[in-house]
Every structure is written in structure tokens, then in C-alpha cells.
Amino acid sequence: MSSQPMPSESEQAPTITRREAIRRVSLLLGGAALIGCGRVEDVEKAAEKAASVPANTRLGQFSSQEIAFLDEVAETIVPATRTPGAKDAKVGAFMALMVTDCYDPGEQKTFRDGMRRVDAAATKAANVPFMQATPQQRLAVLTAFDRQAHREAYETEAEDRKRQGLAQLPPYDSIEAEEITSDAPVEPATFFRMMKELALLGYFTSEIGCTQALRYTEVPGRYDPCIDYVAGSPAWAAHA
């Protein structure tokens, strides 16, 4: 055996490719992240184009103002903390490109109607449009939609299980710890699942998401059986 010292982790680990990051994040989200788009290649193209889009640029059917709106929606979902947030990663442009290039007309309409509903909900709850609302007001509006989308997904699953003769799920209200606030939307919130999944996919496959929000080490690589955990350290990027 060679007596040469083992290369360090930083010397041995290559940079993760965007294609591999997209594949792993889609697996992390159960495959549901690719709504309207089944090919990793299409997601890869949208992500690369979004990263190089100049400010105040129109993308497909989305104006620069609408892209800024999506940036703020994504930033509310993935805000800047000790690491940059979704807006720094240009997630709004990624969302716009994905909807334009990969969604069918019905999905595009659902998504764009959802943007208007977010704005209307902010106006109703905070008396200002979403873009003029405070971060706390924006979070309250999106949280209401998120809870409703979760309820709809749960109830759809319950109905599917009932039709298939499987064990029944308990009523949603019996497991929900927090009740939806009185000013929550009352119409279906299917669009919000699209928004949330695109925001997460766009962020965690961006350079910022992969290199600053997460840590990545190529496998196989050097074997370190015991690594001390330091409180507050970023999570490791998922491995397939």
C-alpha cells in the first residue's frame, strides 16, 4: 500500500453539478417539485438562465414587476438569515421561467391567478398590497395559504385511501395543532403548492443554496467515521 498521505476533504471533493443538485432536491421533495416539467434538463436550463438574467428584465409572460413580486414571495418562504435568501439567488426569475417554459396553459393560469390572490389577501388582511406589506404581514398571508394547501392535500389523500379501501386517516381538524385564522383565504390554495415547491427547488439548486445554505461532500470520498457536530452547522446536501 502507498504511504502517501490521504488527500484532504477540500482537495478531494469536486464541486457538485447543478444537474445533480436538481435531481437530489427533486427526490427530497418526493418528485412533486417538477410540477408541469418532468425533465431535469428543462429545470437545469431554467436555473442557468435565471442566474444570468439582468434586473428589470421581462421573462416570457412575466414582467419585471411580477418577477420582483415572485422574488418577495420566495424570500418570505426562504428568508435571508445567516445565509443569503431566495431573492439573492434570483429565485423569482427561476419561477417565472419554469412557469413559462414548463407549465401547460391550465397550470399557468392557476399560478398567475394565485399571484393575484396573494396580493388580494394581503390587501384584505393588511390594507396594503403584498409588495408594500411588512415581512411579518407577508408571512401571515402565505402561512394561511400554506395551511390551506396542506389541508387540501391531506383531504385528497384521505379520499384516495377511502376509494381504495385502505386504512382511514383521522379527520384533519383532529390533527391540526393550529387553526387557520379568520382572515385566511376560503378558496382552494392549490397554486401555493406550486409556488412553494418552485421556491424551494430554485433556491436549493442555486449556487447560493448548494454552497452556503448546505454543505456538500462528494461520495465516495475519504472515510471519516467520527465527525464532531457543531451546533448551528449547515445541513449536509442530500445524497441519492
Rank of each mutant, 00 (worst) to 15 (best):
M1G: 15
D224N: 15
K124A: 14
L214V: 00
G92N: 01
A144H: 05
A47R: 05
Y103P: 02
I180A: 15
A237M: 12
R19S: 13
R222Q: 12
K49M: 10
E44Y: 13
E11F: 12
G114T: 05
A122E: 04
Y172D: 02
C210W: 03
R23P: 01
P220S: 14
F62C: 00
D104E: 08
I67S: 03
G114A: 01
D104P: 02
N56Q: 13
G202S: 01
A240W: 11
G85A: 09
S182R: 14
L201P: 02
P79C: 10
A46E: 05
I77Q: 04
A240F: 08
M95T: 08
K162C: 03
Q164A: 15
F62A: 03
E20F: 00
I77R: 06
D228P: 01
S52E: 10
T110H: 08
G30K: 01
Q136D: 13
A86P: 04
S174V: 10
Y103L: 12
I35G: 00
Q168I: 10
E155M: 09
K90Q: 11
R161Y: 00
R112P: 06
A133W: 04
T15Q: 15
R18E: 04
L59F: 00
D101N: 15
I35V: 03
L200Q: 05
F145W: 08
Y154G: 05
T205E: 04
D146S: 11
L70M: 14
G209L: 10
L34W: 07
F191P: 02
Y229E: 09
A51F: 08
D42L: 14
A122T: 07
D71K: 05
P129H: 06
A133N: 04
A238F: 10
G31R: 00
F111W: 14
M194C: 10
R58P: 07
R116T: 14
L97R: 15
D160Y: 10
E176T: 07
E218L: 01
G36M: 06
G60E: 05
M115H: 07
M95H: 04
A55G: 08
K109Q: 15
E20T: 12
Q65G: 03
P84N: 11
E218W: 04
R117V: 00
I180P: 15
T81R: 14
P220Y: 09
